[in-house]
Design a protein around this nucleic acid. Structure first.
Lengths: 334, 334
DNA sequence: TACGTTTCCGAAAACCTTTAAGTCCAACGG
DNA sequence: CCGTTGGACTTAAAGGTTTTCGGAAACGTA
């Protein structure tokens, strides 16, 4: 550990110039003779000079730092969004101050204060589900962008996955493979994500003039529920040649149970999951065709939009981000 | 968005006192009459005054901010460590600057510069595996603590899970249940984690005077490998009544294949995993007994140690953190 | 030589806060 | 009435950097 850090004043003395000249030389500005600039640069190098970002920020009013407020780091969905954002910010020479409120509104307020006190240039709020969440942006001195979980205030800027479109993608894929009787097993009905995906399924079927195979089965986001639903449907359910599952966990349970009941996937039964959670979707037998909400891209886009909002203007409202279909072996032509 | 933020000078004018008095009133210091303090506090409230952390940091030389440098956010192990650290820092009113180097040394250097330029008070480096990694702490003006992946310089401070001890825990559990012939299926031999766990197994067996059932099977950290190993062992392998798997993924594949081959877990065969990756370990049939490296605690401990290092002295060297055994249904008395 | 122009550099203010040192005044003891 | 004490407040400096503006030297032109 070095004792004291060099300041620009040390650099200036060593180079035999004034502070002002040193500053200009280091920042590549005009009005410095080439030879002088060289001397300053050499001095800075020798002293391992690093400009003090605090002083710089104090003067300029810009910290080149953004706050990232997440309500739930534990969850699986926040991380990819965070990674995408970190990626975009890193490329823009921005630093990210990370705060996890753990779903606690008090802690969120506390973190918000801390971030503002540190004079962040902007804020990204990452929700824990796609359900709208309370806005924090009332009377804030910096721009805010919501990612994954939208703000409940339509005047804010939010980026969310287009779950209706994602479900439509899945259904259109199944229809193109010749499947006609599609069942739906999904998570709890009080999740926006579950309702949106069911809605997408319904819309796609309706526009193809087909009925859904049985009612939508609402349950939990677990493998266990997927197995249970499979047993129910396959022993006493309606006829169906495909099932659209609301998550990869459900789909993994479903294919496992179907397999044990002697149904061949995809021959007898095509299965589509949701989330493209690789560790699960790629390890089931057969590997799952699934909808990928592309959360990393969502995070990156949100970050880029925050840049725009910081030095210019933002387009408010909820932006729906398209999903991708990842085709693996759990679906095939009949 | 407000136009301009109130400074302490605005608060002072509004309260009709000098800046110094305002500062003292706001910071709860002596030499301020109670009534004056009230006036200042009211003024601060009215203007929504937030002290500028930059100015404060510039003066005090402390930013109450630490850098968290991770080589691999994508991986499963960095996140819990990060959460633990974030937890400890949040409690200490510290903020966390997050940087992900994505395993790239250049990017790591770049982030390091950025963090130092922002005058962080300390640094936590989170590795992507338990293998030693190059030290970054040579001639750094701030203390550094390594978490999960230790530094290759013994003079640094590192916190790593005690994989040897974790494996011992698992084996002792199996022995206590009356199992005597224990096989071992694990990941690649070029992972320190795999070697440590195999070593723990060997030591525990040796001190019980028992031989290992067959050679250690080295493979990958995947479910697929677990299945494959199970098929090999159960069709043409040695006699065994328990298997210690190097990861929950391997164990999940193993129990699945064993089940399909008609072996009952835990009756015929006890299975222990490693990592306590809940989504997997709790969803297999039966749920997995597994070793929990308690990474969140590891992160928290590392953070607390960084505090100590920041304002005092640190005890260098590699600190091994004990693991916990989580007992579920995949193990039982014979 | 006198004067205007260009080139390069330095002095000083500004950003916001904390704190050491100094000022003022009332109360109090003698 | 004077000196002392101590409470309540203010002044000013410090922290590191950027930037504006003014100044000096060198050079060209009349």
């Amino acid at each position: 550990m070095a004792v004291r850090r060099a300041t620009i004043s040390d650099v200036a003395s060593l180079a035999g110039v004034s502070i002002a000249t040193a500053s200009k030389a280091l920042n590549g500005r005009q009005d410095v003779r080439a030879s002088t600039r060289q001397r300053v640069l050499a001095a800075a190098e020798e002293l391992a000079f690093q400009p003090n970002a605090l002083a710089r920020g104090l003067l300029s009013g810009q910290t080149r730092t953004v706050g990232l407020l997440t309500s739930d780091l534990e969850g699986r969905f926040g991380i990819p969004v965070l990674m995408g954002a970190e990626d975009a910010f890193g490329a823009g020479e921005m630093a990210v101050l990370l705060c996890d409120a753990r779903g606690d509104a008090i802690r969120e307020q506390h973190h918000l204060r801390a971030l503002l006190s540190r004079r962040v240039d902007g804020l990204i709020v990452v929700g824990e589900s796609t359900d709208p969440r309370p806005s924090v942006s009332k009377d804030l001195p910096v721009p805010v962008v919501y990612a994954y979980g939208p703000s409940d205030d339509p005047a804010d800027v939010s980026f969310v996955p287009d779950d209706v479109g994602g479900a439509t993608l899945a259904v259109q894929h199944l229809l193109a493979l010749g499947r006609r009787r599609i069942a739906h097993v999904t998570g709890p009905a009080d999740y926006r994500a579950a309702r949106d995906r069911a809605e997408g399924l319904g819309a796609a079927l309706a526009s193809a003039g087909l009925p859904q195979a049985g009612e939508t089965l609402w349950g939990t986001w677990s493998q266990r529920w997927g197995r249970h639903a499979a047993e129910m449907l396959l022993t006493a359910g309606p006829e169906f040649d495909a099932v659209f599952c609301g998550s990869d966990q459900i789909a993994a349970g479903f294919v496992e149970a179907a397999r044990e009941l002697g149904r061949r996937v995809p021959d007898d039964l095509a299965v589509v999951g949701y989330d493209n959670w690789e560790v699960l979707a790629a390890e089931t037998r057969p590997p799952l065709t699934t909808v990928d909400p592309d959360l990393e891209r969502l995070g990156r886009t949100a970050a880029q939009h925050l840049f725009a909002a910081i030095d210019g203007k933002a387009t408010p409202g909820v932006h729906k981000m398209a999903c991708r279909l990842v085709i693996r072996d759990s679906t095939a032509r009949m």
